[in-house]
Design a protein around this nucleic acid. Structure first.
Length: 421
RNA sequence: GGAGGGGUGGCCGAGCGGACUAUGGCGGCGGUCUUGAAAACCGCUUUCGCGCAAGCGAACGUGGGUUCGAAUCCCACCCCCUCCGCCA
């Protein structure tokens, strides 16, 4: 959520940001509504002050004059009706504000699509195969560690089964990543609920605008998390953090659930895009002045995982049009997958500034007794599991279809090579 | 799921129709005293909105209602505790 004052005082900044993102939004209508709202609020508060004052006097009298009570009743009715109008306007205003995306940072490249993203660095080089590398779906089925048919039997398209060393590989990767981030990068591990209340989805920015990508339980109004970013953001919802506690670093493993309502058939092959996937997520709460440098460090923490796995990757800075709703600046990390010959997004690291902090009301006190300020929040995958599994299978495949396990991962997997069981 | 009890400021806890943003205590901060510290004593200790400001308004789990006026009375819901039932 943006500060309404920004719209009041510098609407051109908001309009400019929307144009850069390529989004439409009724900025004028919101400004108008805000003005009407304040006018009415002022009116109702003046009347309330009158009532409070008269009511206080009435309390002190003994005789309780009927005329005064009658006129106060009338005043009360007027206040009541105005209050309803004010509440209605507030609800409207809030709904608009909740649907307004974050303002891109000044150093975000302006662009219209993925082709305008900028590759900021690359690491490693694609392996040279003396044979034609296979895509992971073929490798996985030959090794009997991926089972697509039975996934569909159980749950339909975009579901799959990991079997034997496939499941072990994913589990090992999760433990491997969690260990790196907790032991070496200073993150505290959190195991959160996978279903959360509606307010949490609003706090993180997923509701009200992106309801159609979320799974929802009607009976109890639970929402399935599309990423651990949602529960992690809300860990400190409605809190004022004490001086000295920032920055806070959290890392969390969760399953993630997404409807992925896109063109049927897009990315359906393999395990690249399922309705359920695992992810290790990094999250930071920082002081506003520190969030830019913390984003760079966050990306570095995610890259570290790629490097230890020896996987070729590149870091891409997202242009304005590609930026997520809540983000003011973001980088993606993409691993090269030689079998399906594409760059796979294994991480997206964003600085959300105070956008989520405003929605979720997360503040901190810079000094004892100082006025609370909104924190900045950052999130990044560290990393998304199925895609790392894809890249690993495809990069480490051998001529006989077996998979070498990267050195660093061996303690977690227990074997040096994955072969057909 | 059933029965009973309860939700008040950072924490404990009083208030049960008007002077209550709210007694008191703890914790925290500042001061007096002291070579220093402790003790004792004194003072300060929520947040948001509107407004240039003075100031005004709002919040006692949440939402409704009664009333000139609600932390206080009524209704619904949520959460916590205890007991029972069920359960990985």
């Amino acid at each position: 959520m943006l500060d309404i004052r920004l719209l009041r005082e510098n609407p051109e900044i908001v309009r400019d940001a929307l144009a850069k993102r390529g989004e439409d939004f009724p900025v004028e209508r919101v400004i108008e509504l805000d003005m009407e709202h304040r006018k009415l609020l002022h009116e109702v508060e003046t009347l309330r002050a009158q009532r409070n004052e008269a009511s206080k006097r009435l309390g002190k009298t003994v005789e309780k004059p009927a005329g005064l009570i009658a006129s106060l009743r009338q005043l009360g009715e007027r206040i009541d009706s105005l209050e309803r109008q004010v509440a209605e306007m507030e609800a409207q205003l809030e709904d608009y504000l909740l649907r307004l995306p974050n303002i891109p940072a000044d150093d975000v490249p302006v662009g219209k699509g993925a082709e305008d993203n900028i590759v900021v660095r690359s690491w490693g080089s694609p392996p040279n195969f003396p044979f034609t590398p296979l895509p992971h779906w073929e490798l996985g089925e030959r090794l009997n560690i991926l089972d697509f048919q039975r996934g569909v039997k159980l749950s339909g398209s975009r579901f799959y089964i990991l079997r034997g060393m496939g499941a072990r590989l994913q589990r090992g990767l999760i433990a491997f990543m969690l260990d790196i981030h907790t032991k070496e990068h200073g993150y505290t591990e959190i195991y959160p609920p996978f279903m959360v209340k509606r307010e949490c989805m609003v706090g993180s920015g997923n509701l009200p605008k992106f309801a159609d990508n979320l799974y929802h339980d009607d009976e109890d109004d639970f929402w399935f998390v599309p990423t651990a970013e949602v529960p992690l953001t809300n860990l400190h919802r409605d809190e004022i953090l004490s001086p000295g506690v920032l920055p806070i670093y959290y890392v969390s493993y969760t399953a993630c659930f997404r409807r992925e309502k896109m063109a049927a058939g897009k990315d359906t092959r393999g395990i690249k895009r399922g309705h359920q996937f695992d992810k290790v997520e990094l999250y930071k709460f920082t002081e506003p002045e520190k969030s830019d440098e913390e984003l760079e460090k966050l990306v570095g923490d995610a890259e570290d995982v790629c490097q230890r796995l020896g996987m070729p990757y590149r870091v891409v800075q997202l242009c304005t049009a590609e930026l997520g709703f809540a983000a003011r600046k973001a980088y993606d990390i993409e691993m090269w997958a030689p079998g399906c010959a594409e760059w796979l997004e294994v991480s997206s690291c964003s600085n959300c500034g105070d956008f989520q902090a405003r929605r979720a009301n997360i503040r901190y006190r810079p000094e004892p007794k100082a006025k609370p300020r909104f924190v900045h929040t950052l999130n990044g995958s560290g990393l998304a599991l199925p895609r790392v599994v894809i890249a690993l299978l495809e990069n480490y495949q051998q001529a006989d279809g077996s998979i070498r396990v990267p050195e660093a991962l061996r303690p977690y997997i227990g074997v040096d090579v994955i072969t057909r069981q």
